[in-house]
Amino acid sequence: MTAPRDALISAIDLHKAFGPTPALDGASLEIAAGEVVAIMGPSGSGKSTLLHCIAGITTPDSGRIVYRGRELSGMSDATRSALRRGEFGFVFQFGQLVPELSCLENVALPLRLDGHKRREAERRAASWLDRLEVGDVAHKRPGEISGGQGQRVAVARALVTAPRVVFADEPTGALDSLNGERVMKLLTEAARDTGAAVVLVTHEARVAAYSDREVVVRDGRTREVELMNR
């Protein structure tokens, strides 16, 4: 396997078991700055576990994860969560927006947690909502908008802090084809413009087609089909 030049994230030989079930059984992966990588594979193969490990949400039983030259396992919990807040963005299958807050407040939230003033945070949040074509739902609550709108708000929230990496686990899983593709197009375009890398878990080939390359996970192992000479 040829490593992409200057890997942003390297995951090497990860193992993780939940009780007797191995979820990861020797998974390796490298992500370069700014690239969009799709993680594909059958249900239960370990895609989400792999994503959670490289995003520092789950700790693997063994193996190394290096982010910008620093080992995740060597960091304190506080450092790791500061890293997640400052450099990573997340989008999940069901938006996971805070139901009590308006969409605008949801998108502004990561900036507020980072200590930005309310006015400045909401100004930036509003411009991201516009960019994702959901400026009109800014003052609605998540319960009052459609699933497709909710996912766009979630993408805006993931991008508002200008993260280096966006982790997305089945971000279009609950949407129909048309809305799913719209979300993918907006997500990948925004990521390319801001230089963010995207790690995208999906089992849908049409969604994976928005990536630069794919990594296939089977039985907790990665099978990266290299197409370097094309």
């Binding site: 080939a205 990536s211 296939v216 089909v225 197409l227 094309r230």
Partner: peptide, 20 residues
């Protein structure tokens, strides 16, 4: 099957780019 999957995805990427 893996080789074919990669080839199919390569073409799908091309079509997706063309679509945009």
């Amino acid at each position: 099957l893996d080789t074919q999957r990669a080839e199919h995805l390569r073409l799908m990427r091309e079509l997706t780019r063309r679509k945009s």
